[in-house]
Design a protein around this nucleic acid. Structure first.
Lengths: 203, 203
DNA sequence: CGATTTCCGTATCGATCGATGCAGAAGTCG
DNA sequence: CGACTTCTGCATCGATCGATACGGAAATCG
């Protein structure tokens, strides 16, 4: 559709796609996939429904692009945390990043990947499955990092990397729920620090 | 309205209120407050929308009654756990009960109190706040139980009961999210056991 | 400029949302 | 039985849902 080799270029788009996605991300983050109506979304994006459909396809594809943006933006702390030198620092960075992102002032409380579509109607199950896969993928990446830590001798050889990854992600998802409930940032940070006081947990 | 002192009794209700509430609970549990439409609810309850409004008021009041039923039914493990003799056993019972309830076969995965209304549209914020208060109330009750444990010498005197309660409930909410993502029951059970391997956590 | 392409504002689609009005059936009283 | 009360099935309400059709405005080409 774009850039066929023949003919004039046509009128360029009248709005910034990146900024529109950012606005849409904040709406989905606050209200969830199904709680965010087209009217609310387009009003926040500053465009009409026609422009939204022309630029992003439909509501579900808009959400998919928003989730990509979220992964590389507010949730980028995960990828950075996986590069910490020790498993203990990886876990600490994940929890600290989760607390920071889920309780940032002037941003919606909680985590888009958790509250975006936990329980939905029949028409939203595709997005529900997408987010479930997103969460499970996060846990898998943490497990692989802990597996490497075992191989490197950073973690004791009898450590179960899957168990440990499930523990850290469970804390992270729980923090997201607490944040969505209005719990204070400092309290969550203190709790996360204390949770890693005895590290690593063992089966 | 019911049982005014004058006049005949009138035609009795043609369905079992308790069973209708049970069916509604399962629908809200699976689809959330806003994801459960009146047509889905009434079909599952086996009654018409008119009967639902006559018996329960409206959708929001129906949900409130469903939440009460959930608290005294699937979530009753919390009240029982608080009566365990030691703080350590309280925490263990809470996590074991959470795993059991959020992964019970033939029941919806996850926790109604978590996925019932985490992120909603403007018209659902009353229910959202209701569930946030429900979760915070659970944390408060755990904190008060741990406070008692400190006074009884069951927990070390320097223990922070609020921190410990936040830790246990964060794990519980995280378990609910994992369960909603399809994580296996046995894996969650093993993780919960390991999480309490070093008890209590300290600030 | 004129031709062509694309974007965008308005108006609207059918479906579903939660919620009711109405009338008659069904049951409980004296 | 007959008076009275309540429940229930059908139809429908206005609002909103996600999604489009259409046509004019705007921008880029030769």
């Amino acid at each position: 559709m774009r850039n066929g080799r023949k003919g004039p270029t046509g009128r360029p788009r009248g709005f910034d796609t990146d900024e529109a996605l950012e606005r849409a991300m904040l709406v989905f983050w606050e209200h969830g996939y199904e709680g965010a109506g087209l009217s609310t979304l387009t009003r926040a994006m500053g465009i009409s429904t026609t422009s939204m459909y022309a630029a992003f396809g439909n509501k579900e594809e808009l959400f998919r692009k928003v989730l990509e943006r979220y992964t590389e933006g507010p949730s980028a702390y995960l990828a950075r945390a996986l590069e910490e030198p020790t498993a203990r620092e990886v876990a600490g960075a994940i929890l600290a990043g989760t607390v920071r992102t889920t309780t940032r002032p002037a941003h919606p409380a909680g985590c888009l990947g958790v509250q975006g579509a936990l329980a939905v109607s029949d028409s939203g199950q595709a997005v529900r499955d997408l987010l479930a896969a997103w969460r499970n993928d996060g846990c898998t990446r943490v497990r692989e990092r802990f597996q490497r830590a075992v191989e490197e001798g950073d973690l004791p050889p009898e450590t179960d990397p899957g168990l440990l990854a499930r523990y850290v992600t469970t804390l992270a998802f729980g923090i997201a729920v607490q944040a969505a409930s209005g719990v204070d940032r400092e309290e969550l940070r203190a709790m996360a620090d204390a949770a890693l006081g005895n590290w690593p947990i063992r089966p």
